[in-house]
Nucleic acid binder design. Sequence first.
DNA 1: TCGTTATGGGAAACCGGTGTCACAAGCAAG
DNA 2: CTTGCTTGTGACACCGGTTTCCCATAACGA
Lengths: 348, 348
Amino acid sequence: MAAKNREGGSQPTINDVARIAGVSKKTVSRVINGSPLLNEDTRKRVQEVIRELGYVPNPQARALALRRNFLIGLVHDNPNAQTVLKVQQGILEAIRDTEFELVVRPVDRGMVNMLDDIRQFLERQRLFGVVLMPPISENDSLAELCRQIGCRYVRMGSAELDDPTNMVASNDREAVRDAIRYLIGEGHRRIGFVSGPHGFRSALERRLGFEEALEEADLKLPRSMVADGNYTFESGLLAAERLLDLSPRPTAIFASNDEMATGVLQAARRRGMDVPRDLSIVGFDDTPIASHIWPPLTTVRWPIATMARSAALKLTVSVTEGEQEVDEPSMFLSTLIRRGSVAAPPHN
Amino acid sequence: MAAKNREGGSQPTINDVARIAGVSKKTVSRVINGSPLLNEDTRKRVQEVIRELGYVPNPQARALALRRNFLIGLVHDNPNAQTVLKVQQGILEAIRDTEFELVVRPVDRGMVNMLDDIRQFLERQRLFGVVLMPPISENDSLAELCRQIGCRYVRMGSAELDDPTNMVASNDREAVRDAIRYLIGEGHRRIGFVSGPHGFRSALERRLGFEEALEEADLKLPRSMVADGNYTFESGLLAAERLLDLSPRPTAIFASNDEMATGVLQAARRRGMDVPRDLSIVGFDDTPIASHIWPPLTTVRWPIATMARSAALKLTVSVTEGEQEVDEPSMFLSTLIRRGSVAAPPHN
DNA sequence: TCGTTATGGGAAACCGGTGTCACAAGCAAG
DNA sequence: CTTGCTTGTGACACCGGTTTCCCATAACGA
């Protein structure tokens, strides 16, 4: 029993520290948690022992006693690796130097009992809170589920779908409107649009931005100028083929994300068209690929990492800052990044 | 006290189940853990109550009592989002339907006290085990650290740097040798090589594969045919510029990863060269970008997700399978994927 | 009939922390 | 010299599980 802390491999516990320092567990606990009513000498002595033993509090025991753990979950069904990783980065930045950790949980979009799966995850792990990434964050039932089982959550999305304390949103609609305005300003009159998948709020918002800009400029375009995509490279390629088959064909195409924009570029290249001379292209997201293809893609930069960071802060701030609600913004502005894929339309 | 399980929001505990089912905690515990010495009636009754209450065991309490938790860590400093995400996918696949969860921990490569940072992470969280991704997995001090503090680990890498139980490796060297053989077979005699950064084992192995293939074919190339890169797009572009400035210039370039290969493609394009007519290019990794650029990139596919899955299984199998060591392989084969970026060299 | 053994299940300790409350010491005020 | 308050500390219960040990009961053989 006296040699308890010498057992091979096992880490020292608060009892070991208390015994060696000649104080009670509680006092050690006070030192760890920085309680103000502590004799300076005692604190020093205990800290000395802690350092000597290399004592680290057991997070599981702590979580049990506090009835709360320090795990933030990231639930997502987003297929884009860049985006997912940026979100992870953002969250990690927010919880750096705190005792929180990040647990990732991708879910299958198609799965029938996806909600059950997530419910199980949340109930089993009893996470401190979860960040919900688009597109699954747009699912109101999921938010309702979180509320039901009493799990804090913050949704990331392209519109304000929830209370500001549970939401970080980007202004996709306005950003796209600006992008289309820019194309119109460059002289384009026939602008194709590659949409995101049906049922995605981001797809809808971007589409609405497109339509608002056209309306604003009093530009009437045939329905055929809008082609459906689903955020994948291939769908962008196919959509572009349809658009470029039109006569007269568009002089510019806005794709609702970069991956599809890359597909559009591919389609143009296959027809021997030069970008931007024969066709201007604008994407959305500003993923790394946007600046690595030729010509570099004019695109809308979506401050995804910042949003994720803010989302995580919203979750954790109640703990780290006490009651003082440092209010994180809930709206984030996307901006147009002008690169080389847009030019004035060709004379015809 | 009788209404304990009715408190708003808080989940029912094993005590609630025991009380309502009219048995002891221990019996409930036995039901949960599938103990064989249990009356079938008792089991049924307890299970009924569990279902009724929606009882879920508290993982923190469980972890505390078992002196072991169910978190797998992923420590990485890999800048490539695709790769990192594939590794995450692989691990998650391995722990699907188990009680394990994945905690991610990116670290800054440059940080001076990186090892201290990781040590803190491991000691604080007391993870069940960690998967170490390249390039940080090549760091022997890190492995030593894990051993020291008694944390299970599996390293992913491009050579067998550790005991097979702690290692999953890919045969980069042979894969590159095959790729170069293929180029030689197509008629190339002047082959440029864009290396990965110094000090990376994967960079070294790929380089060695290149040299072995040359030697095999009795091909002597000037030192200038090897240009240094650091796995980034830009470095690939710069390296290619140097190689293409040579006279005579290479008719084919092998880049040690796809991102640099994309840079090489860019450099060729800037000079008005046609790929593969004027220059053949081969990459490594088979990231999505490889098939999204034009021409689609011939590259080496590295079974990264499979390796990660295997790594996670190696960690967890001791628990899930009892003593029966289902031995996961520790070597994984990379294979050449032939696409459109290689052709016979131009006649000159 | 009586020990002996196998089986099902409970009481209590334990894992490693935190919360509550009591209490002692020191000191100022009455 | 009390009284009352502040400050520092410890004893003990508790969080929600698992483990150890032990007992009650039934079945069995002698």
